[in-house]
Design a protein around this nucleic acid. Structure first.
Length: 418
RNA sequence: GUGAGUAUAGCUCAAUCGGUAGAGCACUGGACUGUGGAUCCGGGGGUUAAGGGUUCGAGCCCCUUUACUCACCCCA
């Protein structure tokens, strides 16, 4: 019986892996420029960590999380997001005693949702977390980092910015919002009536046409921020302007997780279909404390690698080619043995090369050379072995260059990679 | 969890009214015995998702199941 992969968990085949390596390599490069260092935490944590950190009432925790009993001893969970585990590690290892820290991670996350375009049960996130700095310039710097990253990859995305307030101003606003929406319940769609109780901020995000008149008249959080949040938000914008980062303020932008305060931001692309967010983040000044650490402000974001890969593909960005430099073509038994020796020599010298151990017709070997993406082909037979001379064929231009076998490694090393 | 759609070769898809399952790509052989991509000719590939029903006859119609896709909820 044939066993298929698990629903919502996908293979990335070799042909597509180059794109993933590119995304991750550029991330490491750009993040290093901003002083972020990589942290690697387990994919499995105590379920309690997410219940407390992400929020008991969120969909992510109460209906989408993979939870299991480990041999009846403890309740564990596959991580549904990266921040909670990173904060746990930050606290557990006492990293806060060394002052502000900027960390990043990348890896698989798990949510048991119904899969659709850009949404999978195992998906991959790259995320940054900065701890210990409450100042708004940090927010702007991190947003600039994301913008830089996208620019380096050559993809366009819209940056939306908002402030979701904090404990000083959000409760009063929520009460006002609920009162307003409650009074006009009759004009709202069924989903919104449901959201009114569970997550009133989400109502503002509703796309249903009939809800729009109500939403347009709703009280705006941005106009009711406390002084602290107001100043913080203004300073983030000042800093972003100074950094030349383009953004649009979207008063309806909401974060789904409980821990966010003040700055919230999101990058979206219309290349994605319904799940348009490719990255989302915000400030979480109380989270470290909530998880048992000392009061430590923080801000972070996560981006979805599957979604980013979709944007890159749709934009027609070709992943970098990664074939061997040389493919040895053997014309006879003597040449085949020589090819084996020369390939070993090149590989010792750090030059990627390949050959077809089956030998066979030259035509088939040349096709193989092309298929694996080799830059050059080199035919070896008794004649070449005798003379010590061979012809290096450029597979794209079809030009042949005479080269002494003894000088092959040096010759290839001196060529610039295209 | 809810709703809709789809399922035919490795991939993308045809198949008229219910009447012998096909093409392109890919793979492979030859034209071309030491030089790949073009062209031409040939070859292998199928339980038409699975199971049941109607019918002389089902890829096509009906039922059940499964899988996938998209959307809602929610989210990266």
């Amino acid at each position: 019986m044939k066993i298929a992969g698990v629903k919502g968990m996908n293979d990335v085949l070799p042909a597509d892996v180059a794109r993933w390596q590119e995304m991750e390599r550029v991330a490491r490069e750009v993040f290093a420029l901003y002083g972020y260092r990589e942290v690697r935490t387990p994919a499995v944590e105590h379920a309690q960590l997410f219940a407390r950190g992400v929020g008991e009432a969120t969909d992510i925790v109460n209906k989408e999380m993979y939870v299991f009993e480990d041999k009846g001893e403890e309740l564990l969970a596959l991580r549904p997001e990266g921040t909670a585990g990173t904060v746990r590690a930050f606290i557990e290892h006492g990293a806060y005693v060394e002052g502000p820290q900027k960390w990043f991670y990348m890896g698989p996350m798990f949510r048991r949702e119904k899969p659709q375009k850009g949404r999978y049960r195992q998906f991959h996130q790259i995320g940054c977390e900065a701890f210990g700095i409450a100042e708004p310039f940090l927010d702007a710097e991190q947003i600039a980092l994301v913008a830089d990253y996208f620019a380096r990859l050559g993809v366009g995305a819209r940056l939306k910015l908002n402030s979701v307030g904090d404990a000083a101003c959000r409760p009063a606003y929520l009460a006002e919002l609920k009162a307003y929406l409650g009074g006009r319940k009759a004009e709202l769609c069924p989903d919104c009536i449901d959201r009114l109780e569970r997550n009133p901020l989400r109502v503002l995000d509703c796309k249903v046409e009939s809800c729009q008149p109500v939403l347009n008249g709703a009280p705006r959080l941005l106009e009711r921020l406390c002084d602290g949040c107001r100043t913080h938000f203004d300073q983030v914008k000042v800093a972003l302007d100074a950094l030349g980062v383009r953004y649009e303020v979207d008063g309806r932008l909401v974060r789904g997780l409980d821990y966010y305060v003040r700055t919230a931001y999101e990058l979206t692309s219309d290349a994605l279909g319904s799940q348009s967010a490719v990255a989302g983040g915000g400030r979480y000044d109380r989270l470290v404390e909530t998880l048992g650490g000392p009061p430590t402000p923080g801000i972070g974001f996560a981006l979805g690698e599957e979604r980013l890969a979709m944007i890159l593909e749709k934009a027609g960005k070709a992943p970098p080619a990664q074939g061997p430099a040389v493919f040895f073509v053997s014309a006879d038994a003597e040449g085949a043995l020589e090819a084996l020796r020369r390939a070993a020599e090149l590989r010792r010298g750090g030059i990627a090369c390949d050959l077809d151990p089956r030998g066979g017709k030259l035509k088939a070997q040349f096709k193989q050379a092309e298929r694996v993406g080799a830059r050059y082909a080199l035919v070896l037979g008794g004649a070449e072995v005798q003379s010590g001379q061979a012809k290096l064929k450029d597979l794209s231009s079809r030009e042949e260059t005479p080269v002494a076998l003894a000088q092959l490694a040096g010759f290839l090393a001196s060529l610039p990679r295209p």
